[in-house]
Nucleic acid binder design. Sequence first.
RNA 1: GCGGACGUGGCGGAAUGGUAGACGCAAGGGACUUAAAAUCCCUUGGGAGAUUUCCCGUGAGGGUUCGAGUCCCUCCGUCCGCACCA
Length: 878
Amino acid sequence: MTADSSKNERYNAREAEIRWQKAWSEQGIFATKNDDPRPKYYVLEMFPYPSGRIHMGHVRNYTMGDVVARFKRAMGNAVLHPMGWDAFGMPAENAAIDRKVHPKAWTYDNIAAMKKQLQSMGLSLDWAREIATCDPAYYKHQQKMFLDFLKAGLVERKQSKVNWDPVDQTVLANEQVIDGRGWRSGAEVEQRELTQWFFKISDYSEDLLRALDTLDRWPDKVRLMQKNWIGRSEGLLLRFALDPATTPNKETELEIFTTRPDTLFGAKFMALSPDHPLAQAAAAKNPKLAAFIEQCHRMGTAQAEIDTAEKLGFDTGIKAVHPFDANWKLPVYVANFILMDYGTGAIFGCPAHDQRDLDFVNKYGLGNTPVVCPPGQDPKTFVITDVAYDGDGRMINSRFLDGMSIEEAKEAVAKRLEKETRGNSPVAQRQVNYRLRDWGISRQRYWGCPIPIIHCEKCGVVPVPEKDLPVTLPEDVTFDKPGNPLDRHPTWKSVKCPKCYGPARRETDTMDTFVDSSWYFYRYTDPWIKTAPTDRKIVDEWLPVDQYIGGIEHAILHLLYSRFFTRAMHKTGHAGVDEPFAGLFTQGMVVHETYRAKNGDWIEPANVKIEGLGDARHAILASTGEPVEIGSIEKMSKSKKNTVDPDDIIAAYGADTARWFMLSDSPPDRDVIWTEEGVQGAWRFMQRLWRLIGEIAEIDAPKTRPATFGEPALVVRKAAHRALANVSEDIDKLRFNRCVAHIYEFANALSDAIGQIESAPAGDLAWALHEAGDILVRLFHPMMPHLAEECWAALGHKTLVATESWPKVEPELLVESTITLPVQINGKKRADVTIARDAEKSDIEAAVLALDAVKKALEGKSPKKVIVVPGRIVNIVA
RNA sequence: GCGGACGUGGCGGAAUGGUAGACGCAAGGGACUUAAAAUCCCUUGGGAGAUUUCCCGUGAGGGUUCGAGUCCCUCCGUCCGCACCA
C-alpha cells in the first residue's frame, strides 16, 4: 500500500488483519524459547473453559494480557504468553445428557471453534504450548502429584456433606440446587454424608495468611478477601461441665470454642450443631429431636442458604454448668445455624452481643443480659432488645470482670480457666482457630481427572502404582441415567489390587476442576516433558507468573487453591517458589443493556433497534417494529440474551476495533458497558489514525536528525515524548483507559500540527513529524497490533512493528522552563501565576502577593498564612 | 446472614489530599457536498451576569485539614463472592 492511496482509502481491517496474522505466524515471532537469555517475563490470563464460543469477557481479558505481552516484548523481555483450556467440568456432561454428544467430542469441538476465534483476535500467544486439562498427557501428572501429596501427608479421607437429590439419587452441585430443589427432578434437596478425599489446605492456614503481606502487586481487596476467608481468630477452647442426670449417656462435658470469653456472664444457652455427637446421641433417645435434626438436613449445603434460613433450635433438655458458678445451669439446644466444621461444632450463646444469638433467644424467650456497656451509656439503663451490641466498652453484670475492657476481660477469663482443671486437664486453653476448611476434591462425576486410588477389601486404600498412570477415563459411558457414569460402568472399576492381586475396585470419584486449574501455569513452562509434571530448572526460571489477569470472581477459591498447590508442589519437589503469582490484576465484567419483548422473552441486542434520545429513547424489534422494553444493564449472559458475539464484531469492524474499545473508557478493573456507539467511535479513531499516518508518510523528511529544532518542531516533539512517557507508565500500571486517552491527545496534537502546515514543512518539522509518527505507531501497537503493522509499513519500515523495541523518551523534552500555578485564596481558586519552574518559594510568594486579584482579596491586610506547594498550588489564608 | 467493592455532567469516565469534569461518546451549531455518508471547525455541569466575573456542584449527613471526589464516622443505593459453576 502506498502512502498516496492510503490517503483516499479506508483501512480495510478484515483484509489486513488476516494478512498480518499470517505474517506473524510464518515468522514464528511469538514462539518462546526456554533458553532465551533475555530477562524473563511471564504474563498469563486465566485460561477459558471451552464452553463453545468466546464471549466479550474473554476478549477483554485476553486483550489486556496481550497489551502487556507486546509491551514487555518491546521492552526487551523474553515473554511467555501461553494459552490452554480448562477442559473438564459439568457443562460437558450436561451437553451429553441434553444433546447426546460425548463430553470429549463436545469439548474438543468447542476447543477447535474457540481457538479459531482467539486467533482472529491477533493475540501474541505461543500456541505451541497449548494444553487441555482433559488430555491424559496433562492429567497423568496431576495424578502423580496427587500420589506425591498423599505420601507427603497432604491428602486425607473424611466425611463430608453433599447435596443429595433423593429422586435422581445423585449428588448435586450447589449450582444445581434452585430454591432448595434439584434442578432436574424438582425434589427437595437433602444433606448427605459421604467419605471424600481432601487436600489439607488448612495445614497452611497461617502461612497462606502471612504470605499475603508479601503479595504487594495484588489488589488490596483480594488480599483482604483472602484474609477474611482464612479467618484467623484467637479464642478459648472451653470445657463446660454437663449435668449427667440430663445427658443421654451420662456424658459429663461439652467442649466449645469461643472468641468472646469476656461475655461468659451474658450466656443464656448452649447450642450444638445437628451433626454434633452429643446431638446425635440425644436424638437416638428422643424421636422428636431426631425429627428436628432430620429437618435441619432438609436443605442444601450452600453457606448462603444455611445462613439465611430461619434460625431454628430444639431444647435437648441437657443442662450445662456455668464455668464460674456451679449453680448456674444453661439449657443445651440443637440449632440449625451451628456448623460442625467450625470450632468444635458447639457454642455458648451470649445474645446481648451477638445478633444471631439475640435472634435466637428472642424467638425462644430466653432473654438477655448485657455485659458490655458502650462508652457514654449508663449501665443501669442500658438494655438490648432487637439489635445486639458488638462494639467496644466496659464490662458490666459480670462479677469479677466488672469495669474491665473487653480485652482485659478476655485475658482474665483465660487466665483463670487455664489454671483450673477437671480430670487431669485444664478447663480451658487458648486456641487459634481458622475459618478455612480443608479442600474437598472428590466429585461424583465422569468428566474430570480420575483419582488414582484402588480400594481393596484386604489392603484398604491402595495408591495406583506410578507405572500404571495415567488412570484414563473409559470412553464407552452412558448418560441416560442420573448419577456417576464411572460408577455404573460395567468393567472400568474392577481391577486387581496392586498389593495383594486380589479383586478390588477403582475409586470412581474424579477431582474437582479447581485441581486442574491450580497448576496449569506450571505446565506451560515445559508442556512437552513426559516424565514429570515440571522440569525443575525451567519452572524455577519462569515462575512466579509476573502478571496474572482474570476475573474478580476468582479472587478467593482459584487463587487460594493455586497458592496452596504451589506450597504442596514445593514440598514434593515439583517447584521451588512459594507464591505462584507475583502480580495480579482483576478485571471487571462486560455488561450490556437487556431487552424484553411484551411477552417477557429476552431479546438479543442484534435484533433490537434503538430510536430517539434521552427520555425519548426507546427500542423496537428490528424485524417487526414491535416495541421492546429496555431493561437494566447486566453482565452479558446467555440467559438474558444480552450478549454480543465477538465474531460479529470482528467481522464488522475488525479485531483492533474490538480490542481498542475494550481498553477505552472504563478502568480495567471496573465493569465496561458494551455499546454500539462506543464500538463505532473506536472504529472511527482507527480510520483516523490510518489517515494521520498516511499524511505523515507523504511528507519528505531528512534522513539525519537536524542539529536544532524550531518552535513548531519542538511542539510536535514535546507532544510525542510526553505521550510516550505517559503511555509507558500507564501500560506498566495496567491503566489502559488512560493509555487510550493519552493516544487520543497525542493524535489530536499531531493533527493540529499537520493542519497548520501551509506548504512543504521545513526539514526539522518534517523530521519531527516522522519521529512522532514512528512513536505513535509503536505506542498503539500493543492495543491495535494489525493497524500498527499496516501503518509501520506505510511509514516505509521493512520490519514488523511487533518485533520493534519500545521508543526511548528524551527526558529534556518533558520539562518546561516555566509553569503556571493556580492561586487559591481560602481554598478557592482566584488567579494563576506563571513563574520559572525552579523558582524559590519566597519568589513564588512575592509574585503571588503582587497579583491584582490577591491584592484585591486581601484589601491591604497581610495574609495570615501563605502555603506554597512546589509545582502544584499556592493557597493564601486571608 | 457473612465478606468485598462501587456511587463524579445527558452517558463512559479523568483527577500523588492541591485548578473537579482530561479523553471519549452523545447532542447542538457551522463548513464541505446537488444531496447523503465520511471528514473538518465551534459549543456543551447548573444558575446569575454585557466579554475578562460571581455563586452552586462529586449519593445524603457530619468530621479532620490552609485545602476533601480523595482521609475518618453514620446513613442510603447498586453490584459481586460464599467453599460441588467455571
